[in-house]
């Protein structure tokens, strides 16, 4: 039974790994800056993917790709944060790091296409990594707060409050612009 379970686990992570490992490594290396940490990040991401495999019904789907991107990014960022604490020469800007990660949409291009102000763009740039994941899962992937809660390990109530806070902050900026 245990060996059967082990083989099931291995098969799933092998599937993800075979298909996406190259891109997961590429993303992780871009964030961590070295192969050793990137490999650790990819392993952490594969473990996360395994834990939430019930969410990944089709590994070729856009939802699966978005999820794998997110867990890989977060695993690499976690390692990068640990590096920054140990390396006195690194000044790691949380905000700068997120905006320039591969695979993230360009907020300035979004601003120009949509037509909102520089202040709104700045507010989007200052969002934390967790806020960005919440927005992406909720509005992009269409998950409910309960589903996102299982992915992010945060209660649905907290997620809801967080989203309200984000909306309120943007609404405040828009309100000042309309005065």
């Amino acid at each position: 039974m245990i060996s059967f379970l082990v083989s099931v686990i291995k098969d799933f992570t092998e599937l993800i790994s075979d298909k996406y490992k190259a891109m997961m490594m590429k993303l992780s290396i871009q964030i961590t800056g070295n192969r050793e940490d990137a490999e650790e990040a990819v392993q952490d991401a594969l473990l996360s993917a395994h834990r939430n495999q019930n969410k990944i019904t089709d590994i070729n789907s856009a939802e699966a790709r978005n999820y794998i991107y997110t867990v890989t990014k977060n695993a690499a960022l976690k390692i990068r944060m640990k590096q920054a604490k140990h390396d006195a020469d690194v000044t790691f800007s949380d905000t700068e790091g997120f905006i320039n990660i591969e695979g993230q949409p360009d907020i300035d291009a979004f601003k120009d296409e949509y037509g909102f102000s520089e202040e709104v763009a700045d507010a989007l740039k200052l969002l934390s990594n967790e806020d960005r994941d919440l927005i992406c899962f909720y509005y992009g992937a269409g998950y409910s707060y309960r589903e996102i809660s299982e992915l992010m390990g945060i209660s649905p109530q907290t997620l809801r409050k967080r989203m309200e806070r984000i909306k309120a902050k943007l609404a405040e900026i828009l309100s000042k612009e309309n005065v």
């Binding site: 856009a62 695979g103 907020i107 960005r132 984000i166 909306k167």
Partner: peptide, 23 residues
């Protein structure tokens, strides 16, 4: 303003999702 904020976040969320999947 809150409705507009929701529209902006909705569009941003969609862009992030598409960008991640495309990557």
């Amino acid at each position: 303003e809150k409705a507009e904020a929701e529209r902006i976040l909705s569009e941003y969320g969609r862009r992030m999702f598409d960008s991640h999947a495309r990557y």
